[in-house]
Simulated scan of single mutants.
Amino acid sequence: METPPNKSLNFDDTEIAFRNKSNGELNAAYWLFKIISSNFLTKIGPPITNFFLNIGLPIKGIIKATIFEHFCGGETIAECEHTIQQLASGHVGTILDYSVEGEDEEAVFDFTCEEIIRTIERASGDQRIPITVFKVTGIGRFGLLEKLDTKTALNTAELAEFEKVKHRCEKICRTAFDKNVPIMIDAEESWIQDTIDELAFDMMRLFNQKNIIVYNTYQLYRHDKLADLKADHLIARAQGFILGVKMVRGAYMEKERKRAEELGYPSPIQPDKAAADRDYNESLNYCIAHIDDIALVCGTHNEESCRILAQLLDTHRLKHDHPHVYFAQLLGMSDNLSFNLSDAGYNVTKYVPYGPIKAVMPYLFRRAQENTSIAGATSRELGLIIKEKQRRRLI
């Protein structure tokens, strides 16, 4: 039976996009994006801020009240409650994302593992938190994953170290299975990704037999990932488990191209944006065509891709809130997509990063730089905020 179309999508509807923001929050967002739009400040901000933090100047309060408050939920899970409820008021779910980076000690990996488990336990039974997430580099050493990707033999200590990584990974995913809380494994740099993919596939074999629990991430700015997705689906179907697909364009393009050039191997990155867009949208087509045995999280800030996925659901006569289809964006970005999609009846979630301010700063700097490097991203956000300020007669 054909599903009747829900409310039509209008990504320019700022009343819906910013319904959950007070006038003060809207004004704060306006000034933040005005600052971010300055390439100069975005470039000099990270080293200056790190310097001030390292010498102990009291700037944490300023950071927490500005960029941290806009892009993060808090320093702890408990501090994220306001954001969880604010998103839920617009029918948008929360993905709690413990965003501490760059650590390299076993004790920290153990702590991170337990913190990820706490996010799963917090999500259990709370429909406002439909999905959770973790990075393998949060629970294992980057250099070890890099060595595994080269297929170099590990020594005895490294073998023991990797057993701990696998144990942490399985402990997290088993908790997700026991609590019936889906969890996504994020993609990372291409030179550690094969090992991450193998871990994710092992977890899907274990826990995706009946329901979707584990998602792996496919970065479609890589030219090989559309083919990988199709091959993985055939394996999953043959072995009788649901393939969990979190689909993104990618986050490491400049680093990937630079490393490939320096080391003299072919870049894994698509030749241009058009190729990445083509593969991304073709992947959407493929996943929806096989929606019974693929579960999809469409992670994108691209308006066209959101429209294509929404249209695919109608074309295939699928409910807008099909349990195998989620849209996802980052907190503080593209509210016009998130809240207009949720208002039209689609499943939508936001990544809500949290953690100690100093430890989360690398994430925040990437968000600021991402907004200036993506053509038109900051001006688009600013334009929508200004439109809503005008609608509210604030300017």
Score class of each variant (00 low, 15 high):
residue 353 P to Y: 03
residue 113 C to R: 14
residue 113 C to T: 15
residue 295 A to M: 10
residue 197 D to H: 00
residue 119 T to S: 01
residue 392 R to Y: 08
residue 293 D to S: 14
residue 226 L to G: 10
residue 157 A to I: 09
residue 244 G to C: 06
residue 67 I to L: 13
residue 110 D to E: 15
residue 211 N to F: 14
residue 295 A to H: 14
residue 57 L to N: 00
residue 326 Y to L: 04
residue 168 R to W: 01
residue 213 I to V: 15
residue 112 T to W: 03
residue 250 G to N: 05
residue 321 D to E: 15
residue 255 K to I: 13
residue 375 A to F: 08
residue 266 P to N: 07
residue 366 R to Q: 04
residue 201 F to C: 09
residue 42 T to P: 00
residue 312 L to C: 06
residue 212 I to E: 08
residue 347 N to G: 08
residue 63 I to N: 08
residue 94 T to G: 07
residue 20 N to S: 14
residue 236 A to V: 05
residue 297 V to R: 05
residue 39 N to R: 14
residue 21 K to C: 10
residue 321 D to Y: 01
residue 58 P to H: 07
residue 116 I to A: 02
residue 314 D to E: 14
residue 113 C to D: 00
residue 229 L to N: 09
residue 278 R to Q: 12
residue 200 A to N: 02
residue 63 I to S: 04
residue 273 K to S: 07
residue 251 A to Q: 07
residue 259 R to M: 12
residue 162 F to M: 05
residue 313 L to P: 04
residue 125 G to A: 12
residue 373 S to L: 08
residue 234 L to C: 12
residue 333 M to N: 06
residue 223 H to L: 07
residue 344 A to K: 09
residue 144 L to G: 00
residue 229 L to D: 05
residue 224 D to Q: 07
residue 314 D to W: 02
residue 90 G to A: 15
residue 49 T to C: 06
residue 94 T to F: 10
residue 69 E to G: 09
residue 137 T to V: 13
residue 266 P to H: 05
residue 243 L to E: 02
residue 178 D to T: 11
residue 173 C to E: 08
residue 337 L to N: 08
residue 211 N to T: 13
residue 112 T to R: 10
residue 115 E to R: 08
residue 194 D to P: 00
residue 353 P to D: 04
residue 337 L to C: 13
residue 358 K to Y: 05
residue 207 F to S: 04
residue 163 E to W: 06
residue 387 K to S: 13
residue 132 T to R: 08
residue 39 N to Y: 14
residue 197 D to V: 01
residue 322 H to E: 09
residue 315 T to S: 14
residue 117 I to P: 06
residue 108 V to R: 15
residue 242 I to K: 09
residue 287 C to L: 03
residue 213 I to M: 03
residue 380 R to W: 05
residue 316 H to N: 12
residue 171 K to L: 15
residue 151 K to Y: 12
residue 294 I to N: 05
residue 232 D to H: 11
residue 77 I to N: 02
residue 257 R to C: 15
residue 373 S to D: 08
residue 73 G to A: 09
residue 246 K to W: 14
residue 305 S to N: 03
residue 279 D to W: 09
residue 217 T to M: 08
residue 57 L to E: 00
residue 246 K to I: 07
residue 237 R to D: 12
residue 179 K to P: 04
residue 36 I to H: 04
residue 231 A to Y: 06
residue 335 D to V: 03
residue 335 D to N: 15
residue 269 I to K: 01
residue 287 C to I: 01
residue 279 D to I: 08
residue 197 D to N: 13
residue 117 I to T: 01
residue 383 G to H: 00
residue 388 E to S: 03
residue 109 F to G: 02
residue 127 Q to N: 13
residue 385 I to G: 01
residue 278 R to S: 12
residue 185 I to G: 12
residue 93 G to V: 02
residue 14 T to E: 13
residue 300 T to R: 03
residue 287 C to N: 06
residue 48 I to Q: 02
residue 390 Q to H: 15
residue 207 F to T: 04
residue 108 V to D: 14
residue 26 L to V: 13
residue 53 L to Q: 02
residue 257 R to I: 07
residue 313 L to F: 03
residue 299 G to A: 15
residue 3 T to W: 13
residue 350 K to L: 06
residue 388 E to I: 10
residue 325 V to E: 10
residue 271 P to Y: 10
residue 51 F to C: 02
residue 152 T to R: 09
residue 205 R to A: 03
residue 4 P to S: 11
residue 345 G to M: 07
residue 79 E to P: 03
residue 319 K to V: 08
residue 177 F to V: 03
residue 252 Y to P: 04
residue 376 G to W: 14
